[in-house]
Amino acid sequence: MAADLKHWAGKFKSLTDSDATIGAMAKYYTCTFMYDMGDAKVIVEMHDGKVKHINTNPAPLDAYDFALRASAASWREFGKPVPRPHFHGIWAASFREDLKIEGNITVLMQNLRNFTVQFELLRKCGVPV
């Protein structure tokens, strides 16, 4: 499980750092967020459009700006190449499915363009749950 998670983190970092759409407006895309996928949790630290670090074993007091929490089943839908309706984005899934967006949502909104693009990279690398 730990090895799988680290392997996934490497793929997600590589896809993010090489993504042209994020790269086109990378400056100031700086924030820290958690993907809470039920069985697996990661904290992604972004700095100027690049992944600075992915914490694959967060401790209880490790900090982040905001979190996306949903069941593993929902994350598996997010990670499909073409997700089903209502699993095709964080707005759709928070309005219609079990996704909860918690924490400092202002930071999410300040970074919404790139965060949205990056979230869709899950369709290429899948999810570790």
Binding site: W91, F95, I105, T106, L112, R113, F115, T116
Partner: peptide
């Protein structure tokens, strides 16, 4: 459900919030 303050909140880039906040109203 869509009459939200985020669309013109002074602490965010409202142009991008409106554009990316409606992004997943479109089909992949």
């Amino acid at each position: 459900g869509f009459f939200l303050d985020w669309w013109r909140h002074p602490h965010v880039n409202a142009a991008q919030v409106c554009a990316s906040g409606t992004w997943d109203l479109m089909a992949p």
